[in-house]
Amino acid sequence: MLARGAEAKVFHTTYDGEPALAKRRLPKAYRLAALDNTIRKQRTRREAKILRAARAAGAKCAELLKEDEQNCELLLKEVEGTLLSREKTIAPKQAFEAGLQLALLHDAGIVHGDYTTSNLIADGNLVTVIDFGLGEFSNAAEEKATDVLLFEKSIAGRANEPALRSHFEKAYLLHARNGHATLKRVKAIYARMRYASQSQ
C-alpha cells in the first residue's frame, strides 16, 4: 500500500504494462451497509467524472486511466511530489498556485469539496489537485466559498499563514470569474460560524 487517506487506500499497480495507482474506497464498518455502498459508488463515479472535466478545463490533476464503479476503484497515474500538508514549510508561490488551480476548477463549474493541503501534491512550485470524491458540479457561491474556507483552515497556524492566505486569495481573485463574490461569501460563512457557536 502506498498511502491511506480517510476514505481510500492507494496501491501500486500496473495498467497497460505501465505503473499506475489503484485508489480503492473500502467499506466503512461504522456505516450502515445500504448507506455505505451508495456513498462509495457515488463518490467513485463522481470522482471519475470530475477528474475528466477538470483536466478538460486545464486544471492540473491526476490522469484517470480506468474507472471501476462496482469495486469502487479508480486507476490513476501517479503524481510526483509531496503532499502539501506534509511540507515543513509551504511557499507563498505554492499557495498562489493552489489559488490559481481552484479558480480554474470553479470557472469550469467544479467545486472540489475537500480542498485542503492534504489533497494537493506539490513538486516545487507546481501544485496538482487530487481526491475529487467530495466534488460536485456547481456554481453556487456557498459551495465555492467552502472550498476557499477549507484551504484557509488547512493552513491555519502555519508561521507564514497571512502570506499564504494573501497569495492564495490574490491568485484566486486574479483568475476566477466571480472571485470577489466568492471571497465575500467566505467572510459571511466565518461570521455565521461565530454566530452558531454562540447560540447554543
Binding site: 467552502t146 491555519a156 497556524g157 455565521r192 460560524m193 452558531a196 457557536s197 447560540s199 447554543q200
Partner: peptide, 24 residues
C-alpha cells in the same frame, strides 16, 4: 449548539484547541 472536532495544536508558539472541523 456545538459540533466541533478539535485537538491541541501549536500556533505561533502557543497551544490552542484548534477546531479542525465543525458544523457550518
Amino acid at each position: 449548539g456545538n459540533t466541533q472536532i478539535l485537538a491541541k495544536h501549536v500556533e505561533r508558539g502557543a497551544n490552542y484547541y484548534h477546531v479542525f472541523g465543525e458544523t457550518l
